[in-house]
């Protein structure tokens, strides 16, 4: 048995964990068909861990859905498979490539894979008849997310209406939806980037190796360091060099930049974040940079 808490205080990390477990259980109890959206990133790995804890020793009572952009890092796919196998969870992969082939989304050559993910995801949710989809969004990530509810209602087009959100009080969540609608659930809304890292460190759980410092051939584009890859041909004037880098976020590899870093342990990563001068998205996500309201626009359309 673990030690008694003499002063009946929970650390903030334990409080966050308790709140997230509460949300997972609430959704499993009240929704007919939940699904956990897994991006492969550290946030969705923390979600997997919380779901594991919420239902232990039972298996997690919902499947895991991943949108395969076709441009995913192989390290991320490997990590995903390890997690799914260990938890004995059912994995559903929705492929952007196939969605393009089936005419569900249209690849005009200009639209990023992250944007094409939206249509692919909505289609997969609809096909699966899912009524609740867990996402790893955090409110500290971006200004538009700061106002999103834990239970975020989506209409039959998968759209979010930021001006017409349901009030959310105490820890009483309202899961009522109509036919064809669904709810996005954000169990780690109140976690910050630092909390995520502390938790990963504390729990000793596996994350994709690209989060840690490694050697990689990279090139510079629009002020970001992108990975050399067949999917991402060098343009005139660009040259790739080998550098010591790590990724702060995980996404479409043609758009996700890395930072030069020697941080090869969780503790070193925490130190690095502590003195970081730029937010994780600002530094390394090409898709958020187009306009100040870029995230809000994509969210309204049904982005994670």
């Amino acid at each position: 048995m673990t030690a008694t808490h003499a002063d009946y205080r929970l650390s903030q990390l334990d409080q966050l964990e308790a709140e997230s477990i509460h949300i997972f259980r609430e959704v499993a109890a009240e929704f007919e068909k939940p699904v956990l959206m897994f991006s492969g990133g550290k946030d969705s790995i923390v979600m997997m861990r919380l779901a594991e804890k919420a239902f232990y020793p039972a298996k997690i009572p919902f499947p895991v859905l991943q949108v395969d952009t076709g441009y995913d890092f192989p390290e991320v796919i490997a990590c995903r498979d390890n997690w799914v196998n260990r938890l004995g969870a059912r994995l559903i992969v929705a492929s952007v490539e196939e969605a393009i082939k089936d005419g569900i989304v249209i690849d005009d050559g200009k639209t990023s894979r992250n944007r094409l993910q939206i249509g692919t995801l909505l289609n997969a949710l609809e096909e699966g008849g899912f009524t609740a989809a867990f996402g790893g969004g955090r409110r500290d990530e971006e200004k538009a997310r700061a106002k999103e509810r834990v239970y975020s209602h989506r209409d039959e087009f998968g759209q979010w209406d930021p001006k017409n959100q349901r009030p959310e009080l105490w820890s009483l969540y309202n899961g009522r939806i109509h036919e064809g609608e669904h709810m996005r659930i954000f169990p780690i809304s109140n976690w910050t980037e630092l909390d995520i890292w502390h938790y990963i460190g504390r729990e000793g759980i596996e994350i994709p190796s690209i989060y840690f410092s490694h050697q990689r051939r990279v090139f510079e584009r629009d002020g970001m360091l992108l990975t050399e890859s067949d999917y991402n041909p060098l343009r005139a004037g660009e040259t790739a060099t080998e550098r010591t880098v790590r990724f702060r976020t995980v996404g479409d590899l043609t758009l996700t930049g890395c930072v030069e870093s020697e941080a090869d342990t969780i503790d070193k990563i925490i130190d690095e974040i502590a003195i970081a001068r730029v937010t994780e998205r600002g530094a390394t996500r090409g898709d958020d940079r187009f306009s100040e309201a870029a995230m809000e626009d994509r969210k309204k359309e049904g982005y994670f």
């Binding site: 538009a144 700061a146 106002k147 001006k163 910050t192």
Partner: peptide
């Protein structure tokens, strides 16, 4: 820094609950 949604920025007012996070050495 804190006015999140576009309509709020346009009107210059805060119309919804927004959650913010910060930490000092003793508390989050």
């Amino acid at each position: 820094l804190t006015d999140g949604l576009r309509s709020e920025r346009e009107q210059g007012i805060t119309i919804d609950v927004a959650y913010r996070y910060f930490a000092t050495p003793t508390r989050k």
